[in-house]
Design a protein around this nucleic acid. Structure first.
Lengths: 153, 153
DNA sequence: GTGTCATTTTTGATTCATTCAAAACAAGCT
DNA sequence: AGCTTGTTTTGAATGAATCAAAAATGACAC
């Protein structure tokens, strides 16, 4: 039940994207499945254990290739390292915790795909709209309340 | 008409923010006035001419102080260096040109300030919503059309 | 299966934006 | 004018990401 076959699903996904199937790429894909929002470092940390000898550069390569192939998306919240997710195609957005940096998905609030429109006449030909919410996650909220129980403010 | 007095307006702004008035800070503020969306590098390039000997570190300091004091805002579009703007307080958004990196302001599309809301129950306590549009500015559009006049695609 | 060649991975160095830290300096109060 | 604290300078250090050349490997044809 653990690795009886070399993950046919990942295999097909990678091959289907026009990329060669390699141990590194399969491992990176698995790591992204396990961690819906992972930095290159986090992915690396997640796979060195099961695939020793992998270089961080290879992880960057794989992630970059996935992004180019449309298998993954790279987001980069201000002040944070580039982060990758497998959820592509739908236009969803993100919440970033200002405390711990945790990133969660947010389904498009307004409705279908391009959920925002720019005013016309700007001269820009808009391709995508990106929405990022910033706030405090429940964990961090609980933690900060524990630290200063007296109603400061 | 050119620098007859040492810019009383900048002076007051900086002092009003609780910061000491220094040549570097005044110069940085001026530079930001002239360039509504400037990186630390751009600001530096803009003031070394008129204030020789200024270090880039001082520019970083000044910009950071301004941001902390609420005089300026730092934005950081994915793949770009940190960029500063003086327009603060209103919640406006940005368009970034995928060609040349040019950044323009976009007034809040939906209406007043926090122009978006997150679904409840996410566990996050939302503080801000940030919207970034990505597209091609008119200059870059014109340029790319000039390069491949044959209707490719 | 074996050979071949293009693609990947590795290794190691390099860039860029930004931050850290200590010493020299200057703003603004008395 | 003198003091104190905040600011600037200088120089080094960090982190994320990219570049490049050599070694290794996947996938195809045979």
């Amino acid at each position: 039940m653990l690795d009886s076959r070399p993950d046919a699903a990942a295999d097909a996904l990678i091959r289907g994207a026009g990329l060669r199937v390699t141990a590194t790429r399969v491992a990176v894909l698995e790591a992204l499945r396990a961690r819906p929002h992972a930095t290159a470092d986090a992915v690396y940390d997640g796979i060195v254990g099961i695939l020793p000898g992998t270089s961080k550069q290879s992880v960057y390569n794989a992630l970059g290739d996935f992004a180019d192939a449309g298998l993954a998306r790279r987001i980069e919240p201000a002040g944070h390292a580039g982060t990758f997710e497998l959820r592509v195609g739908d236009n969803h957005h993100h919440v970033v915790c200002t405390g711990c940096g945790r990133i969660d998905d947010v389904d498009c609030v307004v409705g279908a795909a391009p959920c925002l429109h720019m005013p016309e006449g700007s001269g820009f030909f808009i391709e995508t709209a990106e929405v990022t919410f910033w706030g405090v996650c429940s964990d961090c909220r609980a933690k900060s309340e524990a630290e200063k129980p007296r109603g400061s403010r």
